[in-house]
């Protein structure tokens, strides 16, 4: 084991080791359908823990793939680090890491485990398990849903392939952004969007306003009422009917004024 002082060494107390990495390859081959997971909480909010336990319930049933959560790092093949690595949970996390027998696979779980998440710049936070340990797999999410958890473990064990790819885009010469709903006059669009966002909140308001503006630009203004009615009957949501009714009033007032 590398020479370091578990109490005083700050970041990168454990460095990646080539010999161990080779052993890891052999381990992954051996444990494909019998994988013991130990969960290390490095100062998280417990959202990730709840999702991990949801993933081993009968609904999602991670044990179909031989994934079993064990209660001691001595039994573990895979260590799952959740939480943003706080000052006081760093040493327990390192102790759990060293208690697990080599070779072991380390997984950073959740937004906090991957990079510190929303707590990344707090004074007492190291900002992700990869700041103190060599991490083999990142499972982002806040928290990752049980299917995302199962997918993550399947990727770690080599059963599925990684889907994510680094992306890079460089500005092209003729690149232009398109205006949203250019057929609808600007002042009307602003009135509709503001009203929808005020009534339904920003995220839903925008989506509702988008549906309404698409109806305006596609249809005959005289037939708007009947198209809207058809849509609202299909959606069957009194809250949506109320909001759409108000938007229609705004539209009709604007139409009468012009």
């Amino acid at each position: 084991m590398a020479e370091y002082n578990i109490k005083t060494d700050s970041a990168y107390a454990v460095r990646p080791n080539e010999a161990v990495d080779r052993l890891k390859g052999a381990l992954l081959k051996d444990i494909q359908r019998s994988c013991y997971v130990y969960r290390v909480d490095c100062g998280g909010c417990n959202g990730c823990e709840i999702e991990i336990f949801a993933a081993i319930t009968p609904i999602f049933d991670a044990e179909r793939f031989g994934i079993k959560v064990v209660s001691s790092p001595r039994h573990a093949d895979v260590l799952v680090f959740t939480g943003a690595v706080t000052r006081s949970m760093r040493v327990p996390a390192l102790r759990a890491y060293h208690a697990a027998p080599e070779p072991k696979v380390c997984v950073a779980y959740g937004a906090c485990g991957c990079s510190g998440g929303i707590f990344h710049d707090l004074y007492c936070v190291w900002g992700g398990a990869d700041k103190i340990l060599p991490i083999d797999l990142y499972i982002p999410g806040c928290p990752p849903t049980p299917p995302a958890t199962i997918h993550g473990f399947a990727v770690a064990l080599g059963l599925l392939n990684q889907k994510m790819k680094a992306g890079y885009h460089s500005l092209q010469d003729d690149e232009r952004s398109q205006l949203l709903h250019p057929q609808v006059p600007l002042d009307l669009r602003i009135q509709i969007e503001r009203a929808a966002r005020r009534m339904a909140g920003y995220w839903h308001g925008r989506r509702i306003a988008d549906v309404f503006l698409t109806m305006i630009k596609n249809g005959d203004p005289l037939k708007l009422s009947s198209t809207l009615q058809e849509y609202l009957v299909a959606q069957d949501d009194p809250r949506l009917s109320e909001i759409m009714g108000r938007l229609e009033e705004i539209y009709l007032a604007w139409f009468a004024a012009h």
Binding site: L137, Y138, P140, T145, Q162
Partner: peptide, 8 residues
Amino acid sequence: FELASFSR
């Protein structure tokens, strides 16, 4: 939601 990845 399948975002698991081996590297940052």
